[in-house]
Write a protein that binds this DNA or RNA. Structure first.
Length: 559
RNA sequence: UGCCCGAUAGUAUAAUGGUAGUACGACAGAUUUUGGUUCUGUUUGUCUAGGUUCGAAUCCUGGUCGGGCAACCA
């Protein structure tokens, strides 16, 4: 009920409207969409939005979604990328009906080309790349006809076949559609359909030496798969005219293209070229560097598929330019992690606390809830003893107003343990605080507190003798500016030099020894963390997914 | 100076000729054994000028601003 209401409140995006109209008009009984990545890079958060759109639509309406690799350029495409893309889509939680490759359609596509040639709608051009460019005109001036434009279809047929048979070197000839060199849409000025590339293709090997261009592969592939709604980003708007022209002339299934604006996230880049540069020039450790906006990077960072899907749903789909605030992504992951992450205590920067009235050598196991948000709360046990570590910045000798933490004479609660009072501050020669001596209130034990004392602050802690060592990696935004691509000069000049901070030795409660790669944790008062793949037998490594909201830090910043 | 697309709070997105709403953010408060969570409240918007209409964010016209288009990339 509330689900339905939520749906109504949210309203439909313009693509859902089109689909509902089509369905209502009986144009289709089911819809078919496709997600068409080129296997030349890793998927990023922008692709996630497109994936959620395409797959989400056929979850909502009758129909299915295909995965189709747009592998028409053998020079840049690799099998490594095919596997990573499939992995990422599955991880996001979607299943494709059919797995297709544009390269599977090469024979069919060639046949389409022959048909066009036979009907005088395409011709083989011997012009060089430069000549074609110069004859193309400009956006404000019409182009001129190629001298090869009026060859007979017999000659064209012969040349096309010889192109296919490998008789000509790369770039020697192209097959072009015969449309209109004065067309106001530059894409309609006799677009190139096939080019010669003697290159190894990741799937077809050496079988072909001519490869179709995007415009001669995409629409036809949609048509072959009877895709009803072919969704792509706004830069393809001018291609639609050619998309429709080709489908019309070929008289094949009329798929339709609809365009939406690609989603942009601030403080990062999402162009494959730029991401590849970051990887190749070692500004990051790889495609799965937790600072990368790639799906694999977000995954390693500790983001959950649920939170990414939620984000994509919240940002919606429209046609205008956008730069989405990363704080929304962070909100989504916090919201999910708050529900599922187990609470653990880890001290990043230790300050020794001696509980002077706690018996030496005594250890008690205190239960602490894994997650207070859970319906059925479970507990793990934390060892408590005389010598503890607390966070260095949870103590101040001369605290400011509204400081709820430990200070001389003040009391705080140690989470799930006792209330302690700071009695004495121990310093070294330089005046640096090396440890604090406290006394605990025995009646204040968590769960059976009869002390009647109310304290404002609650601290996380670990027992020194029982703590385990770990490394943590703290991430910040990869760029210093909201939109690196729109800044003066090279986008790499705006990389945030402090995007990674490694703390090689933190003190973690012993239960963390049992961590596995699927676990999500909230390190109490610190943030959400997950085990990194660099973890080894003798070293635990945790990635910080996102910090907790910190209103105290905000308060301090003000003054 | 051609063709195409777009413009609603700081950000993103609804309102389909009839009360401009939601989320995030920001701000204030309540609750809290996480300065977390939760809850409450506040704040800020239809690019502009005309027109059509009883009534316009919505339809029409002009303008302004932003983006795309001259790869044998997708």
């Amino acid at each position: 009920m509330s689900e339905i209401k939520k749906e109504e409140e949210k309203g439909h995006n313009f693509i859902e409207e089109i689909i509902e109209e089509d369905l209502a008009a009986g144009k289709y009984s089911k819809i078919i969409t496709r997600f068409p990545p080129e296997p030349n890079g890793y998927l990023h958060i922008g692709h996630a939005s497109s994936i959620c759109l395409n797959f989400g639509l056929t979850l909502k309406y009758p129909g299915h979604t295909n995965l189709r690799f747009d592998d028409t350029n053998p020079v840049t495409e690799e099998t490594e990328y095919v596997e990573s893309i499939k992995d990422d889509i599955r991880w996001l939680g979607f299943e494709w009906e059919n797995e297709h490759y544009a390269s599977d359609y090469f024979p069919q596509l060639y046949d389409f080309a022959v048909q066009l040639v036979k009907r005088g709608l395409a011709y083989v051009d011997d012009s060089t790349s430069e000549a074609i460019a110069s004859m193309k005109g400009t956006p404000t001036e019409p182009g001129v006809n190629s001298p090869f434009r009026n060859r007979s279809s017999e000659e064209n047929l012969d040349l096309l076949e010889r192109m296919k048979n490998g008789e000509f070197p790369d770039g020697a000839r192209t097959l072009r559609a015969k449309i209109d060199m004065a067309h106001p849409n530059m894409l309609m000025r006799d677009p190139i359909l096939y080019r010669i590339k003697h290159a190894h293709h990741h799937r077809t090997g050496e079988a072909w030496c001519i490869y179709p261009m995007y415009d001669f592969a995409h629409g036809q592939s949609d048509s072959i798969e009877t895709v009803t709604h072919s969704l792509c980003t706004m830069e393809f708007v001018p291609h639609r005219e050619l998309y429709d022209w080709l489908i019309g002339r070929l008289e094949i299934y009329p798929s339709h293209q609809y365009e939406f604006a690609r989603r942009n996230l601030n403080y990062t880049v999402t162009s494959k070229r730029k991401l590849l540069q970051l990887v190749n020039e070692k500004h990051v450790t790889g495609w799965d560097d937790p600072r990368m906006p790639t799906i694999t990077g977000l995954r390693r960072r500790g983001y959950t598929p649920e939170s990414i899907r939620d984000f994509c749903e919240r940002i919606g789909i429209a046609k205008r330019e956008n730069l989405i605030d990363v704080s929304l992504l962070e909100f989504c992951v916090r919201e999910h992690l708050n529900k599922i992450a187990h609470r653990r205590m880890v001290v990043f920067d230790p300050l020794k606390v001696v509980v002077t009235n706690y018996p030496e050598g005594q250890v008690e196991m205190l239960p602490s809830e894994d997650n207070p948000e859970e319906e059925k709360v479970t507990y793990r046990e934390m060892p408590f003893s005389r010598e503890l570590y607390i966070e260095a910045d949870d103590f101040m000798e001369n605290p400011p107003k509204k400081y709820f933490r430990l200070a001389p004479g003040q009391m705080v609660r140690l989470k799930s343990a006792y209330i302690i009072r700071c009695d004495e501050v121990i310093k070294d020669e330089s005046g640096k605080v090396t440890e604090v001596h406290c006394s605990y209130i025995p009646e204040s034990r968590s769960g059976s507190d009869t002390s009647g004392i109310n304290v404002k602050g609650t601290l996380h802690w670990v027992s020194i003798a029982h703590a385990v060592n770990a490394e943590i990696r703290l991430y910040d935004r990869l760029f210093r500016v909201e939109d690196p691509s729109s800044e003066e000069g090279d986008f790499k000049d705006y990389i945030n030099p402090d995007s990674l901070q490694v703390v090689t030795n933190v003190y973690a409660e012993p239960s963390l020894l049992k961590s596995t790669f699927n676990d999500r944790y909230q390190f109490l008062r610190k943030g959400y963390f997950t085990l990194d793949k660099d973890t080894s037998e003798d070293r635990l490594v945790f990635n910080r997914t996102v910090t907790l909201k910190d209103t105290w830090a905000k308060e301090q910043k003000k003054s």
